[in-house]
Design a binder for these strands. Structure first.
Lengths: 189, 189
DNA sequence: TACGTCATGTAAGTCGTTACATGATTGG
DNA sequence: CCAATCATGTAACGACTTACATGACGTA
């Protein structure tokens, strides 16, 4: 799924501007399985327009900058169906967090712990967003896709929280050992 | 995490060739969070060699093509630690499957069902691989990363299986309805 | 004999990101 | 008044993929 297909797909749900498309892809409830920036969306929309797969009308509401609202055409729908008939490419994830985690034994404990805490916060937030989106969503296929994200992130969150607890228990032990060490040193002094 | 860092990281575990690195990244138990092809790995290794972050020795076992076995240097370790101190980039997933699923109501039922079945098979296989890897792994940080993959994929698999069942129940109903319709038509005739 | 695996590497091309340029409006 | 949001767009650059080139060995 390149940015072209993504725009086409999103426009098949409703008319919107390039700005809106980026929001859906990067911040909305689609963001757990795709991504796109302005620098790729705007050229894609121009191209799609040239090919007659989308059209736009210029909207000028006062008090707001003018915007181009894009609509998918018949030809665009046909192109989308065509894309949907090809074999989907395999899904892929790039997790820098997991890469970093491979070296947790070579970092100070606090550094990896910080990464974990941030990750947990990040996923909690995303999960809240997805759960909210799920409630306010009538469209069954979207419910499925959002539900997938909820299931996935819930599992990951549980896993991370359990691991953080384990980490803290180990730390507590070491911490106590350190305290004892400090006491011993004091007694010696 | 670019290919450069990936190579450096993998070589910090053990010496190996570019060919081996690609296997670990694209087929091994690292493949659920990264990806790299020959076309990026070989140039990265050349670059790292030029910068003195890795070295290699040419190995020629008879009956096999010669291979370059790379090792990370002191300088390479230092570079890796430096990388690990930067903020990790956010994780991102690209799921063409989920994108397709958004249009499941505009496809023939069987088409989406096929996608589901394939996805389930794919994830089952990956999960088996991860579980096997987890058993044979002594390195704690790797256990964490593999465990993450197991947790994630288990949840996704459960979700997909549940949804497939739901799909088939709906299909059964429609199927029965169709049979009844066929009977009615016959009776009419 | 033909295919799969091991093994390295390059070149062309694709795709997308980052940063820049521009500018109006709203709210703190 | 400054920052954020809304809004569009381009150009340079970077990173990676795909396809190609090469070749030996083992096995079905």
């Amino acid at each position: 799924m390149n940015v072209r297909s993504l725009c086409l797909g999103i426009l098949s749900f409703s008319d919107m501007s390039g700005y809106d498309i980026r929001k859906m892809a990067s911040e909305g409830h689609f963001s757990h399985f795709c991504e796109a920036s302005y620098g790729s969306i705007y050229p894609a929309l121009s191209q799609l327009t040239n090919e007659g797969l989308v059209t736009f009308t210029e909207e000028t509401l006062d008090g707001k900058p003018p915007r181009k609202v894009y609509s998918i055409t018949e030809k665009g729908h046909a192109a989308l169906f065509h894309i949907l008939h090809e074999e989907p490419n395999p899904d892929r994830c790039k997790s820098e967090f997991l890469f970093y985690s491979l070296f947790s034994d070579k970092m100070p404990t606090s550094q990896f712990r910080n990464l974990m805490v941030k990750k947990i916060a990040e996923i909690s937030e995303k999960l809240d967003g997805l759960e909210m989106a799920l409630e306010g969503c009538e469209h069954e296929p979207s419910q499925f896709a959002i539900g997938y994200g909820v299931a996935l992130n819930t599992a990951v969150l549980t896993y991370l929280k359990a691991h953080l607890e384990k980490l803290d228990q180990q730390y507590a032990k070491t911490g106590n050992a350190n305290k004892e060490l400090v006491m011993e040193l004091k007694n010696d002094a």
